[in-house]
Design a protein around this nucleic acid. Structure first.
Lengths: 162, 162
DNA sequence: GGTGAAAGGTCATTAAG
DNA sequence: CTTAATGACCTTTCACC
């Protein structure tokens, strides 16, 4: 249940040049085209690759403010109902249930700081939300990425073959 | 500097069925193929779409633990040097500079809870890091998504035409 | 390995801001 | 007048059998 070095190279290649065809991939990787196709299919139905969706930048859409909002909620029948209501807010990009003093952590975007106030007001109005605490992301020196992880997996396996 | 309804429909379509060709897109959207291509190109070089990379699931690679680690750092000449060093750790998927009591917020993954301890140890060893505080994400009821936001932008523009 | 089907580019025409 | 959409044509390239 893991990936080998060829898989890692394939993922890396596809990440760097996503619009590459299978044939081009096979040439660059130095393997047969059928191999590439088979590897890709396996990665997809093993759930390693979940999709090829276009990556959209909220900032380019005018949402220049990112914040992490932690919520305390009324804990009745699980956290799910609150999370479900939060999911209906477009500016809420992500929700986690967490350990520590708070119950939920949301990643939120807004057009401006005062727009963030509006979004937070919407969140506070969600039934079951008791308190919020917001932290603004001023800058993102390391944007989300998984490539280093992908490249690392085969090396770890190499050291400790399962 | 925003997107219209056709752009939103195109992004939505491509997100739901990423392996669609331009021709198929044009058919589904009811516009000419050249239009789809032109729109896509414009979205890409306006920075709205940043890439088509394969979405990799860390969980499928064996990294079942996600945590948010906030750091206090020695504030010398900017936060950049520390962030730069953090970027060399594969398990660190994301780094933000933030407001509030801490200076940096990292999204981190690990194979297990005790593996998380190892990763945190690596982070603590980074030069300039004074203190860490970790919050584990137990569950993710709303995984990262931008589609609702994308669908919302044209509607907002429609209401308040610029 | 061959074949049908797209991608990707250019162009002239037309429409709309 | 500028910008965008359209349909037509063409060549290269790929996906599938």
């Amino acid at each position: 249940m893991t990936i080998d070095e060829l898989d890692a190279r394939l993922i890396t290649l596809l990440t760097e040049e996503p619009r590459l065809g299978m044939l081009e991939c096979s040439r660059r990787l130095g393997v047969a085209r059928g191999t590439v196709q088979a590897r890709l299919d396996r990665l997809i139905d093993r759930g390693v690759i979940t999709g090829f969706g276009p990556d959209v930048s909220p900032a380019a859409l005018g949402y220049h403010v990112t914040a992490f909002v932690s919520l305390e909620i009324r804990q009745v029948a699980g956290h799910d109902p609150v999370a479900h209501r939060l999911a209906r807010i477009p500016e809420v990009l992500e929700v986690h249930t967490i350990t520590g003093g708070s119950d939920l952590l949301c990643r939120v975007v807004a057009r401006t700081n005062s727009d963030l106030q509006r979004v937070i007001d919407v969140i506070v109005d969600v039934q079951g939300v008791l308190r919020t605490n917001s932290i603004i992301a001023l800058d993102t020196p390391v944007p989300y990425r998984v490539l280093p992880l992908v490249a690392d997996v085969p090396r770890q396996e190499g050291r400790r073959p399962s």
